[in-house]
C-alpha cells in the first residue's frame, strides 16, 4: 500500500519537521541537567558541571516519593495484569450480551480526561468518607492501567485462536493445565509488554494522582511542586531524566517484544 511516486518535497520537509518538533524539546532536558546556572533557565548554559547528579542523590526529599511511585506502579500494574488478562480472556471466548458495553467501559478511564477520573474518585472518597492512602492512589492507577494490559492481551488471544485450546483439551489437559502450558507461554510476551507499559504509565501519572494522593507525594507530584516553586532547578532536571528513563526503557522493551505483528504495543494509549 505505497505510492510509487516520489514524495513531494514539501511533504518530506513537513514530515521531518514534524518529527523534529516531537523530539528536540526532550533533548534540551539533558543539556540543562549539566548547567552551572541554578536560578534561571538561561540559554546557552554559562558552564557545564556534573555536580547536580551528586546533589540530587543526596537530597533526602527525593527518595520517599521515588519509593512511593515505584510501589504504586508495581501494585497497580500487577492488579491491571490480572484484571486486564481476565477481561481479554472473556472477550476472546465469546460474543455475549453487553460485550460492547464492557469494551467501552474498559476504554473509558483513559478516553475521558484524567481530571474526570480524578475528580470522580475524589467525590467518591468524599461520599464514602475514605481517608487518603497508598491504596487510594492504587485504586485510580489500576483502573486506567487495565485497558493497557487488555489491549495487548486481547490482540494475542485473537491470534492464538480456538484450535490450540481444543488440541490441548483433546490431548487430555484440563482447563488449568491448558492455561499453564498453552495459554500462558503464548501470552507471555504480550503480557510482559502490557505490564511494562502499565508500569510506565502509572509511574509517570500526575493528574489523577493529585486528586487521590491527599498529602502524599509521588515522584511526579514532587516534580510538579518543583515546577511551580523551583528551588534548585538543575536537580529537577536530573529527576526529570530519571523519570524519562524509567518510562522510556519499558516502552522501548515493549516495542521490541511485540513488534512484527498488527498488535505492536503502544498503539492505543
Amino acid at each position: 500500500m505505497h505510492s510509487d511516486a516520489r514524495p513531494p518535497l514539501g511533504l518530506t520537509i513537513g514530515a521531518i519537521l514534524g518529527l523534529l518538533f516531537l523530539h528536540l524539546p526532550i533533548l534540551l532536558i539533558f543539556l540543562y541537567a549539566f548547567t552551572t546556572e541554578d536560578r534561571s533557565y538561561q540559554f546557552p548554559p554559562p558552564g557545564l558541571t556534573t555536580k547536580w547528579f551528586a546533589v540530587a542523590w543526596n537530597r533526602e526529599d527525593i527518595w520517599p516519593p521515588l519509593y512511593l511511585s515505584l510501589r504504586v506502579a508495581a501494585i497497580s500494574s500487577g492488579m491491571a495484569l490480572v484484571l486486564g488478562t481476565l477481561c481479554a480472556a472473556a472477550m476472546a471466548r465469546a460474543r455475549f450480551f453487553g460485550r460492547d458495553t464492557i469494551s467501552l467501559l474498559v476504554i473509558l478511564p483513559i478516553a475521558l480526561p484524567g481530571i474526570i477520573t480524578g475528580m470522580s474518585l475524589r467525590s467518591a472518597f468524599a461520599v464514602a468518607d475514605i481517608p487518603f492512602s497508598t491504596w487510594t492512589i492504587v485504586l485510580g492507577h489500576a483502573t486506567f492501567c487495565i485497558v493497557i494490559v487488555y489491549n495487548n492481551a486481547v490482540a494475542r488471544f485473537r491470534r492464538l485462536g480456538a484450535s490450540m485450546l481444543e488440541a490441548s483439551a483433546d490431548l487430555g489437559a484440563n482447563s488449568f493445565q491448558t492455561f499453564r502450558h498453552v495459554i500462558l507461554p503464548n501470552l507471555g510476551s504480550a503480557l510482559l509488554a502490557g505490564g511494562m507499559l502499565a508500569f510506565a504509565l502509572s509511574f509517570d501519572e500526575v493528574i489523577v494522582t493529585t486528586f487521590t494522593a491527599g498529602q502524599q507525594s509521588t515522584l511526579p507530584i514532587w516534580m510538579l511542586n518543583e515546577l511551580v516553586r523551583p528551588r534548585q532547578r538543575p536537580v529537577t532536571n536530573v529527576v526529570a531524566i530519571v523519570v524519562f528513563t524509567a518510562t522510556f526503557l519499558p516502552i522501548l522493551a515493549a516495542y521490541y517484544l511485540t513488534r512484527g505483528g498488527e498488535e505492536t504495543a503502544g498503539g492505543g494509549k
Binding site: L22, H23, P25, I29, Y32, D204, L224, T247, F248, G266
Partner: peptide
C-alpha cells in the same frame, strides 16, 4: 516513523511539559 511517534506519546508527560518551560 513508528517509534518516532510512539516514544514521545509514551514518554513522561510532566517531563515534556517541563522541557517547554525551559524552551
Amino acid at each position: 516513523f513508528y517509534l518516532g511517534v510512539m516514544l514521545p506519546l509514551w514518554s513522561s508527560y510532566l517531563v515534556k511539559v517541563y522541557a517547554w518551560k525551559l524552551i
